[in-house]
Nucleic acid binder design. Structure first.
Length: 959
DNA sequence: CTTTCGCCTCAG
DNA sequence: CATCGCTGAGGCGAAAG
């Protein structure tokens, strides 16, 4: 799309007629909200229905709070604010033409996401018979939001304009256009060539139906796109997604071309290893469409075409990236196996505790056993080869296979050449040219592991603590009263080998430390017991770095401190306790001090302290394949992560009340492309945590919060190399803690005619939120804007912070910034933000200067500030319970409640809004027989509808 | 003073 | 071709309250 054509609705047809069409098109432009001039102050490019005077009045009254402004008001307000700070340029201006395409595309995406209407609303079959003013359906029923009405109206108007245009053009050109696209309902997504306006024109002139918004699935018959984000690819996987060429060729041939020749999404990707199929473009059941497809479907053609715009390699933009990544990541498998094992053994411990009471055993003489497979992955993979490989002869390793691919595990033959686990394949091949690479076989590892644990449990042991899929700590104190630990270990080794043909090594001692160290001595394929009297002798042979919990960092720190290159445990023993504590802190210091003496009081008995073995966090880390270009892509990715996190929480039957986002960005000195393929390289890390105020695991709410945190962290998109999210402050799901639902809620005697709700104190400064007002906010959202970062950066940081939040909330573009280097930005931003004194000062200034107060802190409900949200929920619960049993809520109460809900909406407290809606939804399920059921259902449905229309993300129930 | 938050470290 | 650098626990120091 070149910039001169950008201002024209279309330039496909004869040039002399274009002049004739110009007036008509200009009108279209303003209605389609297309900015025809660059460098125009946003505030002055208002769509017709908000006139200038009206807006000025609004601006004055709204200056106390921007939550209720529509976007143009907001932008004007911000610019005015910048003047107050002595800045003479606007903060937000219209964009330059070069940015227009990009923003237009982003806006398109946002539109498609957020503005989906109900199925059936968008497509009106007989355009001529419709008069939008009369047809506006159901408006009297919609007290809330009125989004339906708005969308219907908008769609009707657009269809009508299309019709007008077609008639006008046909008349003007005296031409007939073949009805090529009859029965086609077409949606154009993103940037295309020819651009959306030209395609629009071609489609409607040839009897097609063009839709501006993608409704529920099934509405559109075709989607035109050249580039799709991964998320869009998934969303559109049930549509016929074709390139614009399909339109152009069809028009040229005056005949509908087979869509299969132009399809954009192919399904021959991502199935290399596992069955992660991308859904193929499916046939739809609509009779109209199947009729159409009979003509247009040469199925044999589908697989011949090449991918047009799929990323030619797997990275985070690929629709199947996450499942694929997790399916192939060894570290992911290790972590999830460990979590599963831990919870399984915790459950087991709790139930055995119940069934047989606490078992007493000799506490004086402990024997701990540490069992571990020898090069587990390598051994198992070698055994499952066809024919099996003799790992005692052939050097093997398990790896994905590539120069910079990690070696997950290598056998002892390979280790003799110097190969090590974690080494890159390239280095290992240099050491051992004959190295044989084996594939991962995660299923088999799991199977062997199960056998292993079954064997361990078949012994009369005191407790088992899983360390890993192939490794466990076992308390054999009772058994070793009658049997020497070495005999027990030999027996275990034999049993495991017979069952799996894999060798395990065993180490034992009087505590976990000694057992671990003994195991190291036993490897490979051996058993070693540290006798009571030989602890010090044994320890003297151990290096400091070999102690468990002592990694490279701690080791080198102490080496520097002691001016020695290799530290032995006996060297450590000479260091006084407080010196260690001063170097490493009290805890770590004490641990090291004790370890040097062979002391370790780590308890592996789950029963003794089940709390300690409960999960305290659930997280997802992706630090491979992260390469983004746009914030939108990151936000999509965060949504996907939120869904995955939600799934994992559900799996663990847990909910959480605190989310953390951690981002890794390329270190300024590190190369753009790190040595490892799609790796993260050297990175800087930032993280931010958000308290949710209530327990949840709802994917949409988590997604919102994560996107907010993402904006707060304010990193440069292209520098992102890793994304981690984590849910903390976990609790098991119960009816009570999830949404404040309590089935045994007693009915309290309230007077239904009394005002249930006090006026919200903030109500005066929060201008009224009428449905029209909300609709306006939606309609006149102005996509083309750009932040002038020079000016922006001059604003007080507190204002900057709020602005970022607000811009994000409004889905206004904050990309394309003239960003400063991550390091500098981070420093400025956080230093200012973190300092309490400075923050206070800024806030005072703001209060004086602009009368801006943080809406969040002001909002209360029945005099309960929303910060005490649980109490608000309790209050609402009472209100619901009482009124549903009588005549329903009092009108005045409902007004006040609606106002409160709008306020939540306006300050972006979507999580809380959602919690309230769901509280009602869940209560409704048990209230079918109550008199006011229907009324409450209607109220709840409207609340939910409004939420869905704004659709920050899918807020579907995820349980 | 205690609690919370961000960040680091380790293991497999 | 590449490649799948996860994840939970615990500790420390600074800041928040």
């Amino acid at each position: 799309m070149d910039s001169s054509a950008a201002t024209e609705w279309g330039s496909v047809g004869d040039s002399e007629i274009d002049l004739l069409l110009k007036e008509h098109e200009n009108r279209k432009n303003s209605e389609l909200n297309v900015n025809t001039e660059n460098k125009v102050q946003i505030a002055s490019s208002q769509p017709e229905s908000v006139d200038a005077t009206q807006q000025d009045v609004k601006l004055e009254s709204a200056s106390q709070d921007w939550g209720s402004m529509d976007d143009s008001e907001f932008i004007s307000f911000v610019n005015k604010l910048s003047q107050n700070y002595g800045l003479h340029q606007p903060v937000i201006t219209s964009q330059t033409s070069s940015d227009q395409e990009r923003n237009a595309e982003e806006d398109e995406n946002v539109d498609g996401d957020k503005n989906e209407a109900e199925p059936g609303d968008l497509i009106i079959n007989d355009i001529n018979s419709l008069d939008p003013e009369e047809v506006d359906p159901g408006s009297q029923e919609l007290e809330f939001g009125d989004y339906e009405k708005y969308f219907r109206h908008k769609t009707l108007k657009q269809q009508q304009q299309d019709q007008e245009y077609v008639e006008f053009t046909r008349k003007a050109r005296n031409l007939d256009y073949p009805p090529i696209f009859q029965n086609c309902v077409i949606y154009v997504n993103g940037k295309t060539d020819p651009d959306v306006r030209q395609l629009h024109k071609l489609i409607i002139l040839h009897s097609g139906k063009f839709i501006h918004m993608l409704g529920a699935k099934g509405n559109a018959t075709h989607i035109i796109a050249e580039n799709l984000t991964p998320q869009k690819k998934l969303e559109f996987s049930n549509y016929k997604v074709v390139t614009p060429k399909w339109i152009v060729d069809s028009v040229e041939a005056k005949k509908l071309q087979p869509w299969g020749d132009y399809m954009l999404i192919h399904n021959d990707y991502g199935q290399r290893r596992l069955d992660f199929k991308i859904e193929t473009t499916k046939e739809q059941d609509d009779p109209e469409i199947s009729q159409l497809s009979q003509v247009t479907e040469p199925d044999d053609n589908l697989h011949k075409r090449e991918d047009i715009d799929m990323p030619d390699h797997m990275n985070c933009k690929h629709p199947n990236f996450l499942p694929n990544f997790f399916a192939n990541s060894r570290l992911h498998h290790l972590s999830s196996w460990k979590a599963d094992l831990k919870s399984r053994f915790l459950q087991r411990a709790i139930s055995t505790l119940r069934s047989r009471g606490h078992n007493s055993r000799p506490a004086d003489k402990n024997v701990i056993l540490h069992v571990d497979f020898d090069c587990f992955f390598a051994t198992v993979s070698a055994l499952t080869c066809n024919p099996p490989i003799d790992i005692n002869e052939v050097p093997v390793c398990v790896t994905h296979g590539g120069n910079t691919s990690d070696i997950a595990s290598c056998n002892y033959v390979a280790r003799q050449y110097g190969c090590k686990n974690g080494m890159w394949l390239r280095s290992a091949r240099r050491l051992c040219p004959n190295l044989v690479c084996l594939d991962y076989n995660f299923d088999e590892y799991e199977r062997i592991s199960n056998i292993f644990y079954e064997i361990l449990l078949s012994y009369d042991i005191d407790s088992v603590l899983p360390v890993s899929v192939d490794e466990a700590l076992v308390d054999i104190s009772s058994m070793s009263a009658s049997q020497h630990p070495l005999e027990i270990m030999k027996d275990i080794k034999k049993k495991v080998y017979n069952a799996t043909k894999c060798s395990v090594s065993c180490g034992s001692g009087s505590n976990v430390l000694l057992a671990r160290l003994a195991l190291r001595r036993a490897k490979p394929d051996g058993a070693f017991h540290v006798e009571e009297g030989h602890v010090t002798d044994f320890l003297d042979t151990i290096k400091f770095s070999e102690l468990p919990g002592i990694g490279p960092q701690i080791c080198s720190k102490l080496e520097n401190e002691m001016q020695k290159t290799v530290l032995m445990v006996k060297d450590i023993r000479k260091i006084p306790k407080d010196k260690l504590a001063s170097i490493f802190g009290p805890k770590t210091g004490a641990t090291i001090y004790n370890y040097a003496r062979g002391l370790d009081d780590t308890c592996i008995d789950i029963i003794k302290n089940p709390e300690a073995f409960q999960r305290k966090s659930i997280s997802i880390d992706v630090n491979w394949g992260i390469r983004f270009d746009k914030d939108v892509e990151v936000e999509k990715f965060l949504s996907d992560l939120a869904k995955e996190l939600s799934k994992r929480l559900a799996n663990a039957k847990m909910v959480g009340s605190s989310v953390t986002l951690k981002l890794a960005t390329r270190h300024p000195d590190a190369p753009i492309d790190p040595p490892k393929y799609l790796g993260m390289g050297e990175c800087e890390f930032v993280s931010k945590t958000s308290r949710l105020g209530h327990f949840t695991r709802e994917a949409g709410a988590l997604g919102n919060e994560l996107r907010y945190l993402y904006r707060m962290l304010n990193v440069a998109v292209k520098e992102l190399r890793g994304v981690s999210i984590s849910m903390n402050r976990l609790s098991f799901e119960t009816k009570k803690n999830v949404h404040g639902l309590d089935a045994d809620q007693r009915l309290l005697p309230l007077n239904p005619t009394a005002k249930t709700f006090d006026p919200i104190p903030a109500a005066k400064s929060l201008p009224e939120s009428t449905p029209e007002r909300k609709a306006n906010t939606k309609i006149y959202r102005i996509p083309e804007n750009e932040i002038n970062w020079e000016v922006f950066n001059e604003l007080p940081t507190e204002i900057q912070d709020e602005l970022r939040h607000e811009l994000g909330r409004r889905h206004l573009s904050i990309t394309g910034s003239l960003y400063r280097s991550p390091k500098k930005r981070k420093k400025d931003f956080f230093n200012d933000f973190k300092s309490p004194t400075k923050r206070k000062l800024v806030m005072d200034k703001v209060l004086v200067d602009s009368n801006y107060v943080e809406a969040k802190s002001r909002l209360s409900f029945q005099k309960i500030p929303i910060t005490r949200f649980q109490e608000v929920l309790d209050k609402l619960k009472l209100w619901f319970d009482y009124t549903i049993r009588s005549d329903g809520p009092h009108e005045m109460d409902l007004d006040l409640f609606n106002e409160f809900m709008f306020s939540l909406f306006e300050i972006g407290e979507m999580t809380k809004y959602d919690s309230i809606v769901r509280l009602f939804e869940e209560k409704l399920i048990f209230s079918k027989s109550h008199p006011a059921y229907e009324e409450w259902k209607r109220i709840t449905t409207e609340l939910r509808t409004m939420l869905n229309e704004v659709k920050y993300d899918d807020l579907e129930f995820n349980y």
